[in-house]
Design a protein around this nucleic acid. Structure first.
Length: 260
DNA sequence: ATGCCGAATAGGATTCGA
């Protein structure tokens, strides 16, 4: 089972660039972030024509997540539990019925949190506390599940070309990194680091100042696997080349393959 | 580098992103 995550930075803006990657990647399950679309306006046909079930959780203008699957889905839920007043569309879950076993899949778009300090950073940290609570609840079931998407967290200095430029940013502040580690340390495996070590691996390059041409990137899109899911991991890769194409997102896809 | 670019909403200039 191949599961990909991709922050597309707007489905309308990616209408032309997305189909090529869809056909090349041939993922069974795709988690999208920043669809920037209400559910009714999402171009389902692009995906349905390729055999995907489409489950969106959108809102007007910003944010928005989706799950696309060629495998059957069960128990789709929308919204991160823990705050009924939170109207930002950043979380969707579904159980994917694999050929060998089911896998619970959570797609997330974690708040950016800048500027710091301030209400946006407070929201980020509060959202991460809710994420931790949801993660604990799912871990207790002791079944294969994963949480993947745009975490807006640079886990370590080696995950940025210029760590000094991010030192006081919400993506890399010690408090942000500690909140991320509290979740990982519950027992998750960070899939990319389970297979690849060392610097120079990024999933985001800013549109500005020629960041892509200077390879001035950061690694902020992650897969966290439950222990039972980590046992199934066979590969994890970043589709870096996508960033060099016409009208790219500022993020690139990351994917795992599972023996499931 | 202090938003340098890009997208959405709106229908021009502002907000947001990382």
């Amino acid at each position: 089972m191949k599961i990909a995550s991709f922050n597309i930075n707007g489905i309308k803006a990616r209408i032309n660039a997305l189909p090529d990657w869809l056909d090349e990647a041939d993922a069974d399950v795709i988690l999208l972030q920043e669809i920037k679309s209400v559910d009714e306006a999402f171009p389902r046909e692009i995906f349905e024509d390729r055999g995907y079930i489409v489950e969106t959780h959108g809102q007007k203008g910003f944010n928005g997540v989706a799950i696309l699957s060629k495998l059957p889905l069960e128990d789709v839920t929308r919204g991160l539990p823990g705050d009924d007043s939170d109207e930002q569309a950043r979380w969707i879950e579904a159980t994917v019925i694999g050929d060998q076993r089911p896998v619970r899949v959570c797609g997330l778009y974690l708040p950016n949190g800048n500027p710091t300090p301030g209400p946006k950073y407070d929201y980020k940290l509060a959202w991460m506390e809710r994420l931790q609570a949801r993660a604990q609840a799912l871990l207790a079931i002791e079944e294969p599940f994963l949480m993947a998407g745009d975490y807006n967290i640079i886990p370590q200095d080696e995950d940025a070309k210029r760590p000094e430029a991010w030192a006081k940013d919400a993506l890399a502040l010690p408090q942000s990194r500690a909140a991320f580690r509290r979740i990982v340390n519950l027992g998750f495996t960070e899939a990319f680091r389970a297979r690849t070590q060392g610097p120079g691996h990024y999933t985001f390059w800013d549109y500005q100042a020629g960041a892509w041409n200077r390879d001035d990137g950061i690694r902020i899109d992650h897969f966290l696997l439950s222990p039972q899911c980590a046992d199934l991991l066979t590969d994890c890769q970043i589709d870096k080349d996508i960033r060099a194409r016409d009208k790219p997102s500022d993020h690139v896809p990351i994917w795992v393959t599972l023996d499931a």
